[in-house]
């Protein structure tokens, strides 16, 4: 259904992202006063990552089982304060093992 070339998508994405970053850098010379707006922008990154992760994480591997296993590993390690790379590799390893088990059984 896509009739737009890929490079147009990439260009639009890049332009919007750049404009959001660079324009305030050049134009804004004062602080945001509204406490609500500052709080809103402060919490936004976490809200974005949460919405991107759930429910998409459960369809990110070979099966919902392996995704759930990888997700559980990530949650445990993240709460223990492990680094991004350790958490990510452990999640991948768990997902790989569960999918391998499913194939064998």
């Amino acid at each position: 259904m896509r009739n737009v070339p890929l490079w147009v998508y990439i260009a639009v994405m890049a332009l919007v992202t750049y404009a959001i970053r660079a324009l305030p850098f050049v134009l804004v010379r004062s602080r945001i006063r509204s406490r609500f707006v500052r709080s809103f922008l402060q919490y936004m990154p976490y809200a974005v990552l949460s919405a991107m992760t759930l429910p998409a994480v459960f369809s990110s591997t070979g099966s919902a089982y392996s995704a759930a296993a990888g997700c559980a590993a990530a949650v445990v390690l993240a709460l223990k304060g492990k680094s991004l790379i350790v958490t990510a590799l452990a999640a991948c390893a768990c997902a790989y093992l569960v999918d391998a088990l499913i194939t064998v059984l």
Binding site: Y46, L49, S50, M52, T53, A56, V57, S60, T61, G62, S66, A67, G70, C71, A73, A74, V75, L77, A78, L79, G81, K82, S83, L84, I85, T87, A88, L89, A90, A91, C92, A93, A95, Y96, D99, A100, T103
Partner: peptide, 24 residues
């Protein structure tokens, strides 16, 4: 393919690692 499929969760696991410590 089996390894590539498992790596699909990598980015999401990193997001979990970014979000959970401050959320807790």
């Amino acid at each position: 393919a089996s390894v590539r499929v498992a790596l699909g969760i990598m980015l999401y696991a990193m997001f979990i690692a970014i979000v959970l410590p401050p959320a807790s």
